[in-house]
Nucleic acid binder design. Structure first.
Lengths: 155, 155
DNA sequence: GCTTATCCGACTGGTCAGGTAGGATTTAAA
DNA sequence: TTTAAATCCTACCTGACCAGTCGGATAAGC
């Protein structure tokens, strides 16, 4: 399994928030019921999203959560990264300050870390897919507008 | 972490076998030492590769393992799939007999499984990266021929 | 002050990754 | 024919982490 249900639940949460037309906050309880997910568990996940500045929270009665930015400006790379703590394809991969990935494996005397090329490509593919998908797009998809069209046209 | 070290170790194993010019079998002990990996653990991994018909084995003294096919005809999708039991991005994804992926999540009355589009794209990216890389290519990379060029040209 | 909600930390049960151990079996070579 | 080198096989262990629960503290609206 590439990702855990943390990503699954969290993405669904973001989409639910994105479906809210006005800026009114939505309570976790409402989302948990409509998506049929455990409320107590969602609290942990939404905390991660809040720490990553992806959602805003309003406490107290009639409180809840809202997207911190317009749905079209939040891509799934941010979301998934906030939920799963790391999405590097392999342990020896770490993000550098400049945003590039690299393999910390030493060059074994006579030849290089053979898997570096492979994991670089995989990570590239994943990042492209994640960063190329926004909350807004998933909302439209969920509402049925683009449904079959988008699926068929997935490159 | 997208993949576990099973994939990492297994891929390195395949590359080591691919580096062998003639058809002579290589013992696990040799590979384990040259890659500095635990022998007993590798035995489990190579068993999976053998079950998937990716390597052949020869028992007894001077035995060992060989690639079951030419290195250029083994792609990483097969290898990783054999090692990790499933590489679906999410639990609700399963391979159909026709090779397509689908999400077993029910359409929740008013709207579809919102994450389906996302995971489909992610899986597409991963599959493309894996199936587009062969053992032969990694061998060449490891030996330093294409090194910096291939990394820079990763699409 | 009651209700509604977010927040926070601790705890749990299960699964799996990562690795070890011991032995059985096969084969080539001495 | 013994011996050594190798694959093969099964069982076991340990720690981490996922998924989820629980109890309570805090904050805001009515």
């Amino acid at each position: 399994m590439l990702f855990s249900t943390k990503a699954e639940y969290g993405v669904r949460l973001m989409v639910e928030l994105g479906r809210q037309p006005d800026g009114k906050p939505v309570s976790l309880a409402v989302i948990a019921e409509s998506e049929n997910l455990p409320l107590s568990y969602m609290e942990h996940l939404v905390a991660k999203l809040r720490n990553a500045d992806l959602v805003d929270s309003q406490r107290g009665a009639h409180g809840g959560y809202t997207l911190a930015r317009p749905a079209a400006e939040i891509d799934m790379l941010e979301v998934v990264q906030a939920l799963e703590d790391t999405i590097a394809p392999m342990e020896c991969f770490h993000d550098t300050p400049e945003g590039r990935v690299s393999c910390s494996h030493q060059d074994d005397a006579d030849h290089a870390c053979a898997t570096k090329l492979l994991w670089t490509r995989v990570q590239g593919g994943v990042n492209k897919a994640l960063s190329g998908t926004t909350v807004a797009e998933l909302v439209k998809f969920a509402d049925g507008d683009v449904r079959r069209a988008s699926l068929a046209a997935h490159s």
